[in-house]
Nucleic acid binder design. Structure first.
Lengths: 226, 226
DNA sequence: CAAGTATTCAACCGTATACTTGAACAATCA
DNA sequence: TGATTGTTCAAGTATACGGTTGAATACTTG
């Protein structure tokens, strides 16, 4: 005994909820965050999100059912990517809303970052100024593929895993600012911890390449590594 | 055997997912949509969303747990409102993403609107021009409280339920453009159906007051009804 | 103070969802 | 062709969620 009006509304909001459902699981949000950085294979996503491959595949299909991501077969791998830049902006809006309204986000972040020695984040424009003046070494600690796909101009690429062995590549006595994928990526944290232990003056930059680009600043592709 | 990094990430994305979970149920989205219009009591929300009061209360508490809405006791009633304008913008972003990427939204809307006689929606700025030229009568068919809280300048207030009895208030022979709460509110559809049956030249405007204001256009409060 | 009203709480049921495991299905490479 | 690798499918389980119903809690009003 439902009116056509009611049926219409129910149908419409049910459609809207498809997007909502897609972003209602923590792991799917993590996958979306990774995909905001760039296209990835299922395997890569599984590893970076600490999920089983099968589970990752399932989550990706939920995201695909909501049309938030697209899949394309590339040789032996299936590459997933955001269906649209709008999706990334939507994810950022959700993240921003959570940061602004949920005190718990701040608490969790604070507990983690403070636990590892006052790593106050360097503001992006502050860093920019210092980079331009040549005052600091900017260090990109992400995997080299990601560096190649786009990095902050002038940044040096040393994956966090290789950092210990490649410390000599860093100009001694110069302040280092490390960045990775974004505010909740922990590779830069690890890097800074190591660098400080080794006697470097090191800071972490919150912004990743995506945030950097979102501010309208220049991003370099490929090479240019001294 | 999970690393602190992993625990941190899990904790962070779990927080983000609180917002996602809040918008993963169709009925909660409908409640959010209503609250974007303005504050409402539990009872009013229950009626307008065709939910039981108890169920509405539960959904509202989920929204409140995600800090998307606030509640305030006002006399005998509890009034719920959006916690922040940012929440409304977020809802609009979600809606826009669904409209843009889910073909089904368009299908559902088309099926409903076409079923009731080609009610092509009038574009907001087109209407604006015609209103300013005095070519059309703008009709606000929402409940009078909502009209009082904010309406399109020059609009006449006749709730859809009273329209049949108050047809004589409308200038005869003049085109009527009806609006209500937004693109998926059906009161204006009902009104246009009735008006056409009675021989009026009538159209529906998709935009509600919130969309109108979002475009930066003027909104009137209180009175001014002839 | 008692009666009435608005809202929330608590218990319950059916369904949906996240994750695991093991097998099936491509596409590549030897 | 057969072996290997990457991805998806299918079945099973524990948990979470939406919705219902009926009682409990707060507040106003007579």
């Amino acid at each position: 005994m439902t009116s056509p009006h009611r049926r219409f509304k129910d149908a419409i909001y049910e459609q809207f909820a498809r997007v909502g459902k897609a972003v209602s699981a923590p792991k799917r949000l993590e996958l979306l965050d990774l995909l905001c950085q760039g296209p990835r294979t299922v395997e890569a996503l599984a590893e970076q999100s600490a999920l089983s491959v099968a589970n990752t595949s399932q989550h990706l299909q939920v995201l695909r059912a909501a049309r938030l991501v697209d899949a394309e077969k590339r040789g032996l791998y299936v590459e997933y990517r955001l269906a649209d830049d709008e999706v990334c902006r939507f994810f950022f809006a959700l993240r921003g809303l959570a940061e602004a309204r949920l005190a718990e986000v701040d608490q969790v972040a604070r507990a983690y970052f403070e636990g590892r020695g006052a790593m106050e984040a360097v503001e992006g424009d502050e860093l920019m100024r210092r980079v331009k003046r040549g005052e600091v070494t900017v260090l990109d600690v992400r995997p080299p593929e990601e560096y190649r796909a786009g990095h902050i101009p002038g940044a040096l690429s040393i994956p966090v895993g290789e950092l210990k062995a490649r410390l000599k590549e860093l100009p001694k006595g110069r302040e280092v600012v490390a960045y990775c994928r974004g505010p909740y990526c922990v590779m830069a944290v690890e890097a800074v911890e190591l660098l400080r232990k080794k006697g470097f003056k090191a800071h972490r930059m919150e912004q990743g390449v995506v945030d950097w680009r979102a501010r309208g600043w220049r991003v370099d592709r490929e090479g240019a590594q001294p």
